[in-house]
Amino acid sequence: MGLTSKLGGMGVVTVKLEDAINWSRTRAMWPMLFGLACCAIEMMSAQASNYDLSRFGMELMRPSPRQSDLMIVAGRVTRKMAPVLRQLYDQMPEPKWVLSMGDCASCGGIFNNYAIVQGVDEIVPVDVYVAGCPPRPEQLIHGIITLHERVKQERLDDWV
């Protein structure tokens, strides 16, 4: 094998199946292209040249929920938007994760009123919360790495 010999003839690498699956999941976790409000602009910044989210295997933002693994709820969720958001979540294939970006998505933020859902965790299960109004792109990236660390801890028998 040409490639194997170039790599130093490593032969066989043994690894736990769990680790291999979790590793591959963190290296190609496609987020959904789903912006709601101000935080979506910072999410775009994180995606663009200066912060370059593709360093973490995320260069593809999928507009379709059926092709995405991670839902970044970027912005305030209104009562009118909540059923749409839940439907999008239901359309995502397993395994799926939710990252709540910003204060509005996490707890309603400064908008404690009739229109805003006080935290997106009322309608979808959230894995990681990122604080800030809006969070800096660095904060979002930190949240994503935190999520990756969590995914690496997952056990196969938890979801089989």
């Binding site: 409000a37 912005g75 305030r76 209104t78 229109a115």
Partner: peptide
């Protein structure tokens, strides 16, 4: 429209 109605004016 109204999917992002935040109630800012009322707030």
């Amino acid at each position: 429209v109204g999917f992002l109605h935040t109630g800012i004016e009322k707030n």
